[in-house]
Design a protein around this nucleic acid. Sequence first.
DNA 1: CTTCCACAGGAACCAGCGGACC
DNA 2: GGTCCGCTGGTTCCTGTGGAAG
Length: 426
Amino acid sequence: MFKNQGTMDVSVLPQVLQWKQGGAGVEDLEPEVRSPVDEVFDQFLKGNTIFKNRDVLRHDYVPEKLPHREEEIRTLASILAPALKGQKCSNVFIYGKTGTGKTAVARYVLDKLTAKARQIGAPVVACYINCRMAGTEYRILASLCEALGVKVPFTGLAKAEVLERFKKALIGREFVFIIMLDEVDVLVKAHGDALLYELTRLNPELKGSKICLIGISNDLTFKEHLDPRVLSSLSEEEMVFKPYNASQLRDILWDRAREAFVDGAVSEAVIGLCAALSAQEHGDARRALDLLRVAGEIAEREGARKVEVEHVRKAVKCIEYDRIVEAIRSLPLHAKLILLAVYEKTKKVSSVITGEIYAAYSAICSRMGLTPLTQRRISSIINELDMMGLLNAQLVNMGRYGRTKKIRLAVQRSIVREILTQEGLT
DNA sequence: CTTCCACAGGAACCAGCGGACC
DNA sequence: GGTCCGCTGGTTCCTGTGGAAG
């Protein structure tokens, strides 16, 4: 779906250019009449009075200093330190909600550790894998192999074969291999804990090399899905990251803002608002940084010399809008049709039940000459849409009248209509 | 107290695909 | 070129269930 969008943009561009070229007397007027595009570019070039370095506000940026996480850094570093002497270190499990600095701390410590190891010549190899990005057990194994310099094909091999190659790369080589699995809960929910089980019990086979696992999860209840044997060996050490409060968020934002913005471009009020809004949402630093960055971009686009509170308010709306647009556009066709069914069914009433949605969806399908999917599948898709925050599905019991889900749109109707119309579905 | 609705959601399975291996 | 592999996105079949109605 994103690909479609990309080609659309490109296809529009030549038309605009042709129109410009085809316009009467454009060449004569060229020196005086400036195209809107030029204006945008010029403003961008000369008007960069707000940002010094906007990349600092991206969440994949690992800063030199992580305020209010000194304690956690020290703890993790002391757990991993034995690796520098070639000794096995404890497996670690890190919990905490999104934007509490888990990934940043872990990557920070890992970076420092590998740098130190290189400096003193210790055989430490580290591998960071985001399980959500990797997606499957196979690709995680493939990434592990790659970290050891073993090439494996993109697909086609049996998992057992990849695991075998991975072991072979480690056996007898005296490595301390630190594997960091970010969002490990996603892996376990989708594919079970078989891979984790394999990894935790690999050590005795390796004759020399040692594996150390760092699992990171933002789902606190995730432990329940784990086999007790996996759990006990994986969580030899546990760390819990507490959410930031508003004043801590303010410190973090100031730290980054000083690098990201020119002097005087942001005020205490702006930072305070970003911090307060994000603190309301379980102290998510990632969201706070996004908010500040988008507010800055809006201010820049408006040609303002500094970021105002108003820009932050606009940023809140802008981020939400973008999230919804992106979510809906990237949906497969039948998921969009279900969204459409919910949209149409909730015109008069606030919520509808699964059966009604399915009937409406089937009607839409036959109108469009498509074969509808089964109700079982629709039930799953509704759950997916619920997880994405596009729908709100609540399990209800209506006694004699059965057990079903009450479904509402979880986002603004106008946005849903707008996007579905653009997609040619309404 | 029993019945029974209208599904939820788990489990097993399938087809088609891209790709590696021999 | 046949065989095997994993992944995606489905289907079919099935059991489970809270509480209003009778």
